[in-house]
């Protein structure tokens, strides 16, 4: 019993102290995947804020956009043109979702809208496999002028490796988040969007077109998905199993709150770094593969104590 307690509460920390460079490596990798979780979660937050829809299809949008990009390139389209066309595809997707789905489901209960997005997920999986095939593809990293290779840092005789693509992912994600923040705080559309997020009825009455706003937010979520798809694809590859990984944005949202952009970022980092640390240092105790559920269980425990998330507002129920 004593040795078990030591192996839970003592040994992992001793290991961390003994090899600080390895710890840094683990934290860095957790940080990068955390950023990407945050990016996927951001797509959810955008749509949830603007329309109150919990868009289950956000995960598959990541895969679908990455797949479209690579698939187009495979067909011989130059990389940047393919990127441009993919953006167009994401716009068409946003437009058709609004026109064919959202518009017809206005005022339905949330659960119905949520299930509709699960249906949408199915459609996108089917379409993606149908058009581009179901096999795993590798991202066109170099063609998009994204860096490859790695740098080594040797703090005090240790060894930490930074993949350049990871650095790029962190930087691009940060830039994207800043751009979105600016877009929503400085532009007219952004202000309209925040009005819609606050109160649908009131914004309708001051002449904001909900339909227009929905297209824009879904498109923005599509762009975020595309960036997440490129980055994730570049770190591993583009496959449909990515969709399951993208689901981890859900526990991120639970931690951060469904409507908070900073929450999504902090939540993403907590989950990303937390699960890597846990997998590496405590994983051997349980048998590996903890990464599959760690995020969910943390979110679950967290929910019991703070149902509104880290940054969410406490809901006062009324009757």
């Amino acid at each position: 019993m004593g040795s078990f307690i030591y192996s839970v509460l003592g040994d992992p920390f001793v290991q961390m102290l003994q090899m600080p460079d390895f710890l840094m490596q683990v934290v860095w990798e957790g940080f990068v995947s955390g950023i990407l979780y945050a990016l996927i979660a951001l797509g959810f937050v955008l749509i949830f804020k603007a329309s109150g829809i919990f868009n289950f299809a956000q995960g598959i949008m990541v895969v679908f956009s990455g797949l479209t990009l690579v698939g187009l390139h495979e067909l011989g389209v130059p990389a940047f043109l393919a990127l441009f066309i993919t953006l167009g595809v994401m716009y068409v997707l946003a437009f058709s979702v609004e026109r064919l789905v959202l518009r017809n489901l206005v005022n339905q209960p949330d659960i119905i809208l949520f299930m509709a997005t699960i249906g949408l997920t199915n459609i996108l999986i089917g379409l993606g496999q149908w058009i581009f095939g179901g096999e795993t593809k590798s991202m066109i990293t170099e063609q998009l002028w994204l860096p490859t290779g790695s740098s080594v840092w040797e703090p005090g005789g240790g060894l930490v490796i930074f993949q350049h693509i990871d650095i790029a992912a962190a930087v691009i994600a940060a830039l994207l988040i800043i751009c979105l923040a600016l877009f929503f705080s400085k532009t007219k559309v952004g202000r309209a969007l925040r009005a819609v997020a606050d109160d649908h009825q009131a914004s309708l009455s001051v002449g904001i077109s909900l339909n227009h706003i929905w297209v824009i937010t879904w498109f923005a979520a599509g762009i975020v998905a595309l960036v997440a798809g490129i980055m994730w694809g570049a770190r591993s590859d583009v496959s449909f199993s990515l969709q399951i990984i993208a689901l981890k944005a859900l526990p991120v949202l639970v931690l951060g709150g469904f409507t908070s952009v900073p929450g999504a970022i902090v939540g993403g980092l907590i989950i990303g770094i937390g699960e890597k640390l846990f997998e590496i240092y405590w994983g051997p105790l349980f048998g590996s593969g903890i990464e599959g559920w760690f995020a969910y269980v943390i979110a679950l425990i967290f929910l019991l104590f703070r149902p509104q998330g880290l940054f969410g507002e406490k809901i006062i129920e009324r009757v």
Partner: peptide
């Protein structure tokens, strides 16, 4: 897959 997805959305609408 696509058809079932479409039917789900359609039936919900």
């Amino acid at each position: 897959l696509v058809a079932i997805g479409v039917m789900i959305v359609f039936i919900l609408i």
